[in-house]
Amino acid sequence: MPGCFINYRTGDGEHVATLIDRELKQRFGSGEVFRASRSIDAGQDYVRALDAAVRRCEVLVAIIGPAWLDSPHRSGGDGRALDDPDDWTRREIATALSLGTPVIPILFDGAARLRPADLPEDMRGLARCQNRRLHHRSAESDLADIIEAVEVAAPRLGDMGEDESSEGDSGQSSGGGVANTMRDVSGGTVAQSREFHGVNGISGRTGDMVFGNSGPVNTGTGPQYNGSTVHNGTGDQIGVQRVHGSRNGGESR
């Protein structure tokens, strides 16, 4: 089951829920983030799906906008939606709080910090949960803070984030980083990529390109030559315009 559950109210925060869902998916993977409108398939029992996801998640992110507290019943009834024990936004948060699951309120568009007296009894713990804010003028740094808060609240997800960062440092990340497989190259400029086609006569899949080096460089298998002439072993000099041979040494998956 997903490690992070995104709680939001229809009519007050769907766009923020979608944004945070996207950021968390990029960080932890789609399977680790639950957002009802995306994660529940057609024909699936949504009551069971919601209940199972919120009970098994490791952290719940509650999206709270200016209209969240006083949002009316969707059915048009009197009073606030939060005062209805069957309101799904309330049920999800109350369930997480009762289980001791960390809940992170995300206040956006200047939403005021919650007060216990404004909440139903089974939700009052939400007012004591440390929040994070999201503002359009500081969205990039705010989203980074939200991701960090999720990692801290859910250590397993935090470990996943650290693993991804480590892979990124070594060039092994699944997001397209290229591993540094160059060895003993001095001088010049080194560029690595998945493929180079039609560059200085080199075609096919390659891993490493070296520009301006002062001597022969071999990062794969097979003969590779650097310079305008080489000896072919019989005393003849052959002009070289292309590099031939396998270039397996730098291919990244």
Results as ranks from 00 to 15, higher is better:
residue 182 M to T: 15
residue 76 G to H: 11
residue 234 T to M: 12
residue 31 G to K: 12
residue 221 T to I: 09
residue 78 D to R: 15
residue 182 M to K: 07
residue 170 S to E: 14
residue 36 A to Y: 02
residue 106 I to Y: 01
residue 24 L to T: 02
residue 94 A to P: 00
residue 98 S to T: 12
residue 64 I to L: 11
residue 152 V to C: 09
residue 252 S to L: 04
residue 237 Q to H: 11
residue 158 G to R: 02
residue 58 E to L: 13
residue 149 A to K: 10
residue 147 I to K: 00
residue 201 G to R: 06
residue 113 R to C: 06
residue 246 S to P: 03
residue 220 G to W: 01
residue 215 G to R: 15
residue 137 R to A: 12
residue 58 E to N: 11
residue 43 G to W: 04
residue 180 N to E: 07
residue 242 R to G: 04
residue 217 V to C: 04
residue 84 D to Y: 07
residue 13 G to S: 07
residue 70 D to V: 06
residue 66 P to G: 05
residue 175 G to M: 13
residue 61 V to F: 03
residue 155 P to V: 07
residue 57 C to D: 02
residue 202 I to G: 00
residue 146 I to E: 00
residue 82 L to R: 02
residue 89 T to M: 04
residue 158 G to T: 08
residue 122 D to K: 06
residue 176 G to H: 08
residue 72 P to E: 09
residue 137 R to I: 07
residue 210 V to G: 02
residue 245 G to S: 10
residue 186 S to R: 15
residue 48 R to K: 14
residue 93 I to A: 12
residue 161 G to Y: 03
residue 29 G to K: 03
residue 59 V to H: 01
residue 229 T to D: 11
residue 162 E to A: 12
residue 185 V to S: 06
residue 210 V to M: 07
residue 63 I to N: 00
residue 244 H to K: 11
residue 26 Q to H: 13
residue 155 P to H: 08
residue 10 T to H: 15
residue 53 A to M: 09
residue 183 R to N: 12
residue 237 Q to I: 08
